[in-house]
Design a protein around this nucleic acid. Structure first.
Length: 414
RNA sequence: AGAGAGGUGGCCGAGUGGUCGAAGGCGCACGCCUGGAACGCGUGUGUAGUUUAUUCUACCGAGGGUUCGAAUCCCUUCCUCUCUGCCA
């Protein structure tokens, strides 16, 4: 949620930032109007309520002293009706503001490049050089089938399209990667956490998936519960409605979960293979920091994810997302894209975001600084998407006969 | 899933219509005491909005109702605990 006080104070600055995220000036103006309306409505109501409270107190006093209450009662009755009306209009103002603001994205950082789509993202650097093959490298689905690692048809039979089965060495590699990543992140200071993969509506509102993106989520019928699209949701909600003592910060977490996404709107994209599945494994980093430290922790998270790829000997690059590609809650995002020789391109394998206080304001996660309670900054990032890591290992490690050489860091996990 | 009990501040816990944002205790912070510490004593200690500030408003799981006035009465709902059932 964006900072309404800041909008009041620096309307031009905030609206300029929001317009970079394609929020129309009309919407921003409405937002400002509604927040001012609420403020006045609240003030009027509270004044009337104060009057009511004062008279009610008098009422008790009169009764105790045996005074006549008829006149007072008439006054109090009249004020009561007025107060109820004021309260109702305050409620309406509140509701219309909430509805609007919950759908407003975060403001991008000043240094985020402008752009329309992923084509305008800015490459920051490349790590490791893709090796050249003296044969035509295959795509991962071919290798996966040839090695008996992934069974696509049976995944569809058991569930539906965009589901697959990892099998034998494929399943073992998957598990090895999860363990490897969890250990790697833990050694970097991220405490391992295992969380529910089914969460309630409030949790998804806090992180920003709801109310706007309900169509992307698998919902449990009749329960008002949802399958998580990322461990970011349960991990970030760990501290929801809490005040963390400042000396505990930063809190760095690391968790593995399966993730579930409907992939509505991506029909026809990545239909072959396991690049885009309804269910996939991911190890996620989440951090809670003091406001002044989130940039530092952000860099640490990017470095950690990049180092995992390096340890796995996977060539990759860092890309800073432009405003047009930035997610709903993110102020700043760096994607890690891994080289896929079969596809002859870099593909996203991790996305690391600083949401600053956007999620913290929705989730009411604060810390105490002196006498004041401040919103934490929350950050999240994959380290890494497991399925896509398998894809990269297959395509980069393939030999001419279709067998696959795996990096030696995985030896002790296999 | 059935039966019962219950949800109050960081924690425990009192409070059945007004003087209750809420006794008391624990914890925590500061001060006194001490060579230093424990003990003891004193003071302070919820969140959010509003205001320059005092103030004021809201919050005793959530939502609604009764009333001039609700932590307290009524309704709905969520959650927790105990027993029974089921089950990794």
């Amino acid at each position: 949620m964006i900072d309404l006080k800041l909008l009041q104070k620096d309307f031009d600055g905030v609206s300029r930032a929001l317009m970079r995220k394609k929020v129309t000036l009309e919407t921003i103006n409405t937002l400002k109007e509604r927040s001012e309306l609420l403020k006045t409505a609240k003030a009027t109501f509270e004044a009337s309520q104060a009057e009511q409270n004062a008279m009610s107190k008098l009422f008790g006093q009169y009764k105790r002293e045996g005074k006549d209450i008829n006149e007072l009662k008439a006054k109090v009755d009249a004020n009561k009706a007025k107060t109820a009306e004021l309260q109702e209009s305050m409620r309406q103002a509140e509701e219309s503001l909430t509805t609007l603001i919950m759908g407003i994205p975060n403001t991008p950082d000043a240094d985020v490049p402008d752009g329309e789509s992923e084509d305008d993202n800015v490459e920051i650097k490349k790590v490791l050089t893709p090796k050249s093959f003296d044969f035509t490298p295959k795509e991962h689905w071919e290798l996966a089938e040839q090695n008996g690692w992934i069974d696509f048809e049976r995944g569809v039979k058991i569930s539906k399209s965009r589901f697959s089965v990892s099998y034998a060495d494929g399943a073992r590699l998957e598990r090895a990667l999860i363990n490897f990543m969890l250990d790697f992140n833990r050694e970097r200071g991220f405490v391992e956490v295992s969380v529910p993969v089914i969460v309630n509506r409030r949790s998804l509102e806090a992180t920003g998936q709801l109310p706007k993106f309900e169509d992307d989520l698998f919902k449990i019928e009749d329960e008002n519960l949802f399958l998580i699209p990322t461990a970011e949701v349960p991990l970030t909600n760990f501290f929801r409605d809490e005040i963390i003592s400042a000396d505990k910060l930063p809190v760095l977490m690391n968790g593995y979960t399966p993730c579930f996404r409907k992939e509505a709107g991506s029909a026809g994209r990545d239909t072959r293979g396991i690049i885009r599945q309804h269910q996939f494994h991911k190890v996620e980093l989440v951090a809670f920091t003091k406001q002044e430290n989130s940039d530092k922790i952000f860099d640490k998270m990017v470095q950690t994810a990049s180092d995992i790829l390096t340890a796995l000997e996977l060539p990759h690059r860092l890309v800073q997302l432009c405003t047009g590609d930035l997610g709903f809650g993110a102020a700043k995002t760096i994607d890690l894209e891994v080289w896929l020789p079969g596809q002859n391109t870099y593909r996203e394998i991790s996305s690391i975001s600083n949401t600053r206080d956007f999620q913290a304001r929705r989730a009411k996660i604060r810390y105490k600084e002196g006498k004041k309670n401040l919103l934490v900054h929350t950050l999240n990032g994959s380290a890494l998407a497991v399925g896509r890591t398998m894809v990269a290992l297959m395509e980069n490690g393939q030999n001419e006969d279709g067998s696959i050489s795996l990096p030696k860091v995985l030896d002790k996990y296999l």
